[in-house]
Design a protein around this nucleic acid. Sequence first.
DNA 1: CCGATGACGATGCGATCGCATTGGAATCAT
DNA 2: ATGATTCCAATGCGATCGCATCGTCATCGG
Lengths: 187, 187
Amino acid sequence: MPRAVDHEQRRFEIVAGLWQIVAEQGIEGISLRSVAARSEVSMGRVQHYFGTKDALVVAGIDLLVKRAVIEYETTAGRPPDERLLHLLLQQIPATEAGRMGVTVWYAYVAKAMTHTAVREILAEATRVGVEECTRHIQEADGLPKAAARERAIELLALSDGLTLRVLVGDITAAEAEASIRDHRARL
Amino acid sequence: MPRAVDHEQRRFEIVAGLWQIVAEQGIEGISLRSVAARSEVSMGRVQHYFGTKDALVVAGIDLLVKRAVIEYETTAGRPPDERLLHLLLQQIPATEAGRMGVTVWYAYVAKAMTHTAVREILAEATRVGVEECTRHIQEADGLPKAAARERAIELLALSDGLTLRVLVGDITAAEAEASIRDHRARL
DNA sequence: CCGATGACGATGCGATCGCATTGGAATCAT
DNA sequence: ATGATTCCAATGCGATCGCATCGTCATCGG
C-alpha cells in the first residue's frame, strides 16, 4: 500500500475552498478549476477525490449539513428550551463566518429546486430539524406531539424568513434574534 | 423609421422563456442560446433586445417583480385585511404556474447574494412589501406604526419560511395557508 | 423612389468548461 | 529489491459559452 493520506482531511480542504467560491460567486462559480485554485491544490487532486463536478457540488452541501449536526450534538444534555433556541438561532448570521455558512446554505436551497440529490440531503436535514424541535417543545411545554409539531414548523419557518431578511440587509441579526425569542416566549 | 414592433411584447416573450429555463434548471441554466431556443427565437434577437447576458438575467427578476406589483394593485380599494392576506398568501404555490413563479423568485433570491443589481431590485420589492403590510396592519388593527411594522416583518418572514417548506415538499400549500391565516387571526 | 434606420439572422472567435488519459513519484507488503 | 497500489500533476479534446461583427431585409419619412 502506498502513501497514507488523510482522506477526510483532503476532502475537507477542497470543500472549504468550494464554500468560499459559493459564498462569493454562488453555485454558478463552482468549476473544477476555480475550486482547485481557491483551495490551492491542483485540478488533478480535485478530480482524484471527487471524480465529477456533480459529486463535488453534492459534497459541498453534505459536509455543511454534517458540520451543523455535529455542532448541534454538542448541546446534548442541555435543557430542552435551550436546545430548541439553538436550533432556531444557529443559522442567523451573527458572525462573518456564520454569514458565509448560511449564504452557502441558501445557495444550495435554490440548487435543490432543480437537483434531486441536493434536495434529498436538505429534505432529510430539515426533517431531522423539525423532529428535534418538536421533541423539545413537547418536553418544555408539555404539548401533545401534533400541536408541538405545528409550532415547531412555525418557529422554524419564522427563523428561515428572518434569516433571509438579515441576509438581504433588511434587518439586523440582533433584531431577528429578538423577534424569535419574543415569539418563542409568547407561545 | 423601420418596422414597428412591440418592444415590450418581444422582451416579454423572451423573458417568459427565461423563466421556464430558470424553473427547470436554475439560474445556471441561463445562456443566450438556451433562452433563445426555449423562447423559439433566434439568438440574434435575444442579443438585440438585451445586449448582454447580464442584462437578460436582470430583466428576468425585474419583470417578475413588475408583474407581482401589477397583480397586487388589482386589490386597490379592498379592505385592508384582505389586501394584507393577499400579500402574505400570494407567493404560496397553489397552482403549477404559481409554483414556477415562486421557484424563479427564490432562484433570484440566491442570486441576489452575489449580484448587486439583482439584490437592489429584490430589496426594493421587499421594502415596498413591508411598507404596504405595515399600512394595512395599522388600519386594520389600529396599531402604532412601529408595532405594526414589527408584526408585518414577522408575518412576511413566516410566509417566506412556509413557502420554502412547501417548495421542498415538507408541507402542503393548504397547510401553509392555514398556518398563516391562523397566525394572523391570533395576533 | 430612396436612403436612413431599426430589426434581426448568421457566423466566427477566444475563452472556459468537464472530463478522460497518461505518466511519474511515493509508499509498503513481500 | 521489486511489484503493486495509491496519489496526483499535466495535458489534450470536444463542447459550450458570451460576445462582436457582418450582412440583409423591411419599413417609412423625405
